[in-house]
């Protein structure tokens, strides 16, 4: 389940440059290396020492993966309702508005049509900075429409996931987004176009247990947190320490649930080659 509430900001390189004061240094949470921010950015927010991948804004991913850094966006006007009238420390609509203000996005997904080395694809990318990338009705709907565009236009589908899971504030309806998206992927199979699922840190719970796990090919960035249940819950259940590297990309690869670990700088090239192999004209 979504554990973003407990996440410290450690390792969370901020999404917008303006939040980082000039000349600041940061520490790699994986190897402890102190890195000059400018160098980190030049290195696509990855640690040159240990390959740890810091978070990257979804707009940066778009620049990195899509031709000319261009995404023709769709569905940016969808706003979540508040079917449960949910309130914890904040009212849910207030939480949404705050996230919209700080991210400039309507919800935790950007989606649309773009190109990878000339090939038209239906593309979506999740953004952790919007309520932990959690999936509610809007995320589910935007992913659903992304799949439908790929199906209707008969073009490849690429989804970059980054999510703590379902959005609790929408209760059962957030769970149903797993069914909505997965059911549409069953329909997408019929057009025989590849779905490349890209997993970034973290991809867990409801998103991992639906479309993120359903790629024809699944690739992940190094050392990402991937899994179903939260580490804390597992620890409580088994009453023992978890082994090092548990629920990492490397762990997933080792156990056969990942096709390939890909460094961020090689993402575009890898996706492009895979599409070429599996795309039938």
């Amino acid at each position: 389940m979504v554990e973003w509430f407990h996440k410290s900001t450690e390792g969370l390189i901020s999404q917008t440059k303006k939040d980082i004061p000039e000349g600041l240094w940061t520490k790699c949470p994986e190897c402890g290396e102190v890195i000059y921010i400018k160098a980190l950015e030049k290195n696509l927010n990855t640690c040159g020492q240990c390959n740890y991948h810091f978070k990257l804004a979804s707009t940066e991913y778009i620049r990195l993966i899509l031709d000319d850094g261009k995404l023709e966006t769709y569905d940016t006007g969808l706003i979540s309702g508040d079917p449960l009238e949910f309130k914890d420390s904040k009212k849910y609509p207030d939480r949404i508005r705050m996230a919209q203000k700080s991210t400039g996005q309507n919800d935790a997904v950007l989606s649309g049509i773009g190109r990878i080395e000339g090939k038209e694809i239906s593309f979506a990318i999740m953004d952790f900075s919007f309520i932990g990338g959690s999936m509610g009705s809007v995320v589910g709907e935007m992913i659903a429409r992304t799949i439908e565009r790929a199906t209707m236009r008969r073009i490849p589908l690429v989804i970059v996931s980054c999510s703590g899971g379902a959005r609790m504030q929408e209760g059962i309806l957030s769970l149903m987004q797993m069914a909505k998206t997965s059911a549409l992927l069953a329909r997408f199979d019929e057009v025989h176009k590849p779905f490349i699922s890209v997993l970034t840190n973290p991809t867990t719970a409801g998103v991992m247990a639906s479309y993120a796990s359903l790629g024809d090919v699944i690739v992940a960035e190094p050392k990402a947190l991937l899994g179903f249940a939260g580490k804390r819950v597992i620890q409580q259940t088994i009453g023992a320490e978890l082994p090092p590297g548990f629920q990492s990309s490397e762990f997933f690869l080792e156990h056969g649930f990942l096709d390939k670990i890909v460094h961020r700088r090689d993402l575009k090239g890898t996706i492009s080659v895979l599409i070429d192999y599996f795309n039938q004209s």
Partner: peptide
């Protein structure tokens, strides 16, 4: 399942 969810434009 396609129709489940609550959102507006």
């Amino acid at each position: 399942f396609r129709n489940m969810g609550v959102f507006y434009h």
